[in-house]
Design a protein around this nucleic acid. Structure first.
Length: 755
RNA sequence: GAGUCUAUAGCUCAGUUGGUUUAGAGCGCUUCAUUGACAUUGAAGAGGUCAGAGGUUCAAGUCCUCUUAGACUCACCA
């Protein structure tokens, strides 16, 4: 044995585990299975500390495998819709291109290839960290059967009346070119101007003077005596494009204390105003286009971006004496795109929604009655609160990277469908089908198709056919909106285990055996995005929860307590750390002394300290082997003669029994921090510093106790630091008879009776 | 506006249902040791009125209330 432990053999050890079939459980109906579905990483993402924290799952998996349970850890990769398209578009930008240079199919194919290159890298990195996943059951979110099943779910939701298309106000990012759900908007406190402007007989305060062209009312509080006389009347306002008329409405939404107690109502570009518009039957007048520029209704401001238009409008109003004052220190919250950080523009657009109330009900009940348990338990409240206030989910995204919504429109029946496509000369053409049909063939449109938008009342079919049921036309076109990524990943436990939405009786044996899975371990930041959606889909489709326990783990932050991100440049790369200190050292650092679901810092110091621990294990083992070699005639075994134990032996065996018991309960209770600390203390101090030191003065009678403690320690440590423990175990096997071939499948230690 | 969490040695943090810990670890610091498992070592040590105040209890870092400081989540305030 070398003088110190080298991590160079890790890859070989991993291979021998994989080859032996240890990662692949056999379905055994006499035994209760243990299963974890891996929170599928973005297939395009190189590994970061978040992935390294899957160590927690590996600990659970290895522990339960050693308990003899059929144990499944199912890995996967996510196409990660907007995330990936965003990264790809950045790459295009560097090459001087944009998404508008390609038809959607070409763009899709390019992204597909881009992801394929990185997908294997991601798997390789998981193996590097020693994760004992069943690679024979690996799934990628865009595999045909998985997509097929997801589409079947959409159709079922539609048939059950839980999917609808509606023109509501949605969160639209003009930079990404798509709408988002409420969860994808980050609200940021910002200081902006609050403009007080003349508005007919009023003065009113607004942050958005440029949307004035879309105003269709002005509102006051019904209790506000200052303005009672105007309510119900039509007033004339001097606009920059000439005078216009709006109605004065009374609505409780208006805060009398704020500004002047008068609000302009722009239903097309503000969520509150949109709702007010519904209450008062106001016209929705869109003045901002999906390109983020004002349209023709803005008169001479048409074509300007929102920011530019605001500047110009304010300047012009000041010149004309319409601006009363500007409060430049107004703090409020602005919605920004979680991806690109541009300001989210509330827009009215037809989108696909899922009705959530029906789906949320059983998911709330499952949390309340304990069908799903939360660890730490405080997340139960967070989860239930969110579910109880849930709003309908916008599942449509105007991007190409992802499965298209399985809905077909007949162009002949719906001539007002707006289409954007590249003609055969690669020029962008856009307009209503009815206006373009004489110039372009349906095939030319389909081949160059970039996107389409059907009016909200368009007719459609949810089954693909080659002709329209009404008019028999073959001019059918599939919805270009794709699914929100979470619509797919929300069904991940079902898809990967082979659940069949169309005919549940045809689901695979894996599904029957491993569903519901045992634990879902993930970071709390996707509790709503993912965990909540999986629960709802699981219950909706199978009447059963997808997992019995939700374990939320900690988040790794940098030394300043900030979230690690590439843009901040504060990322500690787990792979660099494994190269430097070995995988075991990194893994141990990720669980040693951490509290559940709180931020924690992983410093290089900490990893170095645990590299020393790993080395300590190596050298203690080396010493034990030296002792064995010292007594060549001794029968090398772990059989202890209990009548000949001295007090040292009894003490260490008693400590061993204690650590076996505490490690077992600590893992059962998800107290990984405590478990690892105790193991560290036991091995280094109780075993090495005390027992081994004293054993140096004793004879060959120490051999059985030394071996017993060492082998049991290796087993207890194996889930945490699999490589060094397996490595030592294999060396021991060369010296003595050990019936269990590998530590990974060896049995979990039990109390040793010696009294 | 609603909710959640955190505050323990110089630094980073453990301390699970209140009582064998006179409060622990790693890193750092001080002194000494060590040519045979390991300097990626061993022994000894310095360092904390467990944010502050009050309360419950035979007993509180651990439970309750308030105060202070900080972090986060959710929510449509023009």
């Amino acid at each position: 044995m070398d003088k110190s432990y080298s991590s160079a053999t890790e890859a070989d050890i991993y291979q021998s585990w994989e080859k032996s079939g240890a990662f692949t459980p056999k379905i055994d109906k006499t035994k209760k299975p243990y299963s974890i579905i891996l929170p599928l990483p973005n297939a395009n993402d190189p590994m970061h500390m978040g992935h390294a924290l899957f160590t927690i799952q590996d600990i659970l998996i290895r522990y339960h495998r050693m308990l003899g349970e059929p144990t499944l850890w199912l890995p996967g990769g996510d196409h990660a819709g907007i995330e990936t398209q965003f990264v790809f578009e950045k790459k295009l930008q560097k090459e001087g291109k944009s998404r508008f240079d390609f038809d959607r199919q070409t763009l899709y194919d390019m992204i597909w290839e881009f992801v394929e290159k990185n997908r294997t890298l991601n798997q390789f990195q998981m193996k590097k960290l020693g994760f004992s996943m069943d690679w024979t059951r690996y799934h990628y979110s865009l595999e045909t059967p998985i997509v097929k099943n997801v589409l079947a779910t959409f159709k079922k939701l539609y048939r059950d009346g839980l999917v609808y298309r509606s023109e509501k106000i949605v969160n639209y990012c003009t930079h990404c070119g798509t709408a988002f759900s409420n969860l994808e908007v980050d609200y940021v406190d910002e200081v902006t101007n609050l403009y007080y402007m003349k508005y007919g007989p009023f003065i009113l305060a607004t942050t958005r003077p440029e949307t004035k062209f879309g105003d269709t009312a002005v509102a006051v509080n019904p209790k506000d005596k200052r303005y009672t006389q105007y309510v119900g009347q039509e007033i004339t306002v001097d606009g920059l494009n000439g005078p216009f008329k709006v109605k004065v409405i009374a609505d409780d939404m208006v805060d009398m204390e704020f500004g002047t107690g008068v609000v302009k109502i722009t239903p097309a570009h503000d969520p509150n105003d949109f709702d007010a518009g519904l209450r008062h039957h106001l016209e929705v007048k869109k003045v901002i286009g999906f390109d983020g520029r004002l349209n023709e209704l803005a008169g001479k401001y048409a074509g300007l971006t929102v920011a530019k238009a605001r500047e110009q409008v304010v300047a012009d109003m000041q010149e004309k004496g319409m601006m009363v004052k500007i409060d430049s220190n107004y703090q409020h919250r602005i919605g920004r795109c979680y991806r690109c950080k541009h300001v989210i523009e509330p827009m009215v657009a037809p989108q696909w929604f899922v009705k959530m109330e029906t789906l949320a009900k059983p998911a709330i009940a499952a949390a309340k009655n304990g069908d799903i348990k939360f660890f730490p338990s405080r997340f139960k409240k967070t989860y239930i609160d969110w579910m109880e206030n849930i709003r309908d989910w916008n599942i449509s995204r105007q991007i190409v990277w992802g499965p298209r919504i399985p809905v077909w429109y007949c162009l002949e029946c719906n001539p007002r469908i707006k289409i954007n496509f590249l003609d055969k000369d690669k020029n962008i053409v856009s307009g209503f089908y009815g206006d373009l049909k004489d110039k372009y063939s349906v095939d030319e449109i389909k081949n160059g198709l970039q996107s389409m938008m059907a009016p909200v009342d368009a007719t459609f079919e949810v089954e693909e056919t080659d002709h329209c049921a009404k008019c028999s036309s073959h001019a059918l076109i599939q919805e270009t909106d794709t699914f929100d990524t979470w619509f797919l990943s929300g069904q991940w436990p079902l898809s990967t285990l082979g659940f069949n939405t169309e005919d549940p009786s045809k689901s695979s044996p894996d599904f029957a055996y491993f569903y519901p899975t045992t634990v879902m371990d993930t970071l709390w930041d996707i509790l709503f995005f993912w965990v909540a959606r999986m629960t709802m889909f699981g219950l909706y489709l199978t009447k059963d929860v997808p997992f019995k326990t939700v374990h939320l783990h900690s988040r790794v932050v940098d030394a300043k307590g900030q979230k690690m991100s590439k843009s901040k440049g504060n990322v500690v790369d787990p792979l660099v750390m494994t190269e430097k200190y070995g995988t075991d050292a990194l893994r141990f650092s990720l669980v040693y002394g951490i509290a559940p679901a709180s931020d924690f810092v992983v410093s290089e110091d900490k990893i170095r300290a645990h590299r020393n621990f790993v080395n300590k294990i190596w050298n203690a083992s080396r010493f034990v082997l030296m002792i064995i070699d010292k007594y060549p005639n001794t029968n090398i075994s772990t059989t202890i003669n209990f009548s000949k134990l001295n007090s040292d032996d009894k003490n260490i065996l008693e400590s061993l029994n204690k650590i076996i018991a505490s490690t077992t309960t600590n893992i059962d209770k998800y107290h990984f921090g405590q478990a690892s600390e105790n193991l560290y203390q036991f091995f280094w101090h109780d075993f090495c510093d005390l027992y081994i030191e004293n054993a140096k003065d004793r004879g060959e009678e120490v051999v059985p106790v030394l071996l017993t403690v060492l082998i049991n320690s290796l087993k207890l440590l194996h889930p945490f630091i699999p490589f060094v423990t397996e490595s030592v175990y294999q060396i021991l096997r060369e010296k003595m008879t050990l019936t269990e071939e590998q530590l990974i499948t060896a049995s979990w230690p039990k109390e040793i009776k010696f009294k």
